[in-house]
Design a protein around this nucleic acid. Structure first.
Lengths: 153, 153
DNA sequence: TACTGATGATCAGTATACTTGTCAATTTAG
DNA sequence: CTAAATTGACAAGTATACTGATCATCAGTA
């Protein structure tokens, strides 16, 4: 049997993430939005940190700096974010959320909430809280082991 | 602040999975193996189920049917798995682990164990057990919400 | 000031993970 | 027993997530 493999933390992490993405995309689509979890998180971060550059944004939500380029490309293409060269540092691209981006964040919120609930539907409130707490704890302790660690903003 | 986004289960799932993959690849590489977590799980499943076809393999470890094709391609290219057309069903590709594949699974085991330990290093034994139990429970309850649900066992 | 190093971003390349569509082979329905 | 539905696999396309390399710019120092 391969139960040993299927019960390893790495495999469970992959499965849970797989379900989380599926649920998010399904809820967003049902609500009429074409936004992935990654794009959503980036958009929310840009809103919360006006004028942030891509590298700082990547550190904030723990994305690889190469990956963030493509994500921002798509957000820009959808008109949710604007990107321009910084005046202080001409290497940097300064990001800002557009009015459409703001409306999108507000409008998609119920779908996001529904998705977060759906992926925990097998757990009661206490279990869900425990799972999130332990996930946070494990992540915090291993942050530096990731190739794209979270960097405080 | 974007703490609300960063503390959502979906984001934590992504971060934990991200760390799990990084740790696995790093440990495997340090041990002299070029194998990803996905390839490892597929290889272990092929060993445990001789003569399995790709679709059944995909269901067993909850991979997308299309994804498994590329994974098996790489395993075959590395000489870890052999693939041939089934005699009972000529649509199917029958998979078998090679001697090199078996040696690889044995040899990489310490690195896999080290990786699983590393990604839980922030938790004590009791917390780790709880996290895995709750992850399993959440996954089981939402299995069908995934695009590539686990099939059979 | 010139040099050195660090940093922001991008490009090319690889690997997952999924979509839709297609094809061939098999199974089931009528 | 044929027609319809299903299934296994692949192809093309998109999105995340990295590697390593390169380029431009900026910051520090000698």
């Amino acid at each position: 049997m391969i139960a040993e493999v299927l019960n390893r933390p790495g495999h469970l992490a992959r499965r849970f993430q797989q379900i989380a993405v599926s649920v998010f995309v399904a809820e967003a689509e049902a609500a009429g939005y074409d936004l992935t979890p990654v794009q959503y998180a980036a958009l929310a971060a840009v809103k919360a940190h006006k004028g942030i550059d891509q590298a700082t944004l990547a550190g904030l939500i723990a994305y690889d700096r190469t990956t963030i380029g493509g994500v921002v490309d798509r957000l820009e293409q959808k008109g949710l974010v604007s990107r321009r060269v910084s005046k202080e540092d001409r290497r940097a691209r300064v990001l800002e959320i557009t009015p459409l981006g703001k409306r999108t964040l507000v409008g998609i919120e119920p779908a996001v909430a529904a998705a977060q609930k759906a992926m925990l539907r097998g757990l009661d409130a206490s279990e869900a809280a425990t799972l999130l707490r332990l996930l946070r704890k494990a992540i915090d302790a291993s942050n530096e082991l990731s190739r794209a660690p979270m960097r405080e903003g």
